[in-house]
Amino acid sequence: MFGWGVIKGMLVTLKNFILSYFTKERLTTVQYPEERLPVKERFRNFPFLIYDNKPEDLRCVSCDICAKECPPKCITIVRDSDEQGKPLKRPKVFDIDFSICMNCGICEEVCPFDAIFMDHEFELAKFGRFEDLNYRKEDLLKPAEHFAKIRPQDAARIEAKRRAKAQPATPETKTQ
């Protein structure tokens, strides 16, 4: 019958209209910011540097690998040096530019010292365009407990790996 396809279409929309009052599946809005969806574990948004106990004990030794591998080149690292000018295994300057970073996660993959990981923070809007978006070393430091809280499975794996690497060294240091 002419017009039957049109009526079938209207019945589908009517079904959606009525069921949207009853089932949650047909009304999928999440009323942000009152309700939020939980963030997935592997979600990567912006990197952070990890430290063990005190902010001075950061794991990064400023080897510069992440800065070289970063595709858009958003990381700037300057190695620290002590009073005589001898280079130390610590970064003096570690800047990541938020307006350049594309959240690819390659810096986390290539770091040999498990020092940089991707964070879950995404509500990072700022008012200034240049100064406010350049994250310095102090803004990037976060404790290892934070890492364990946001990514428990990855943190457990990394901890096991570090412990396994640290184990053979202990008898050696004991004898020394």
């Binding site: 929309t13 959606n16 209209f17 949207s20 009304l27 999928t28 809005t29």
Partner: peptide
């Protein structure tokens, strides 16, 4: 509001 409900949203 009506068209929104048809489209599964508020």
């Amino acid at each position: 509001k009506l068209v929104g409900r048809i489209q599964n949203r508020y």
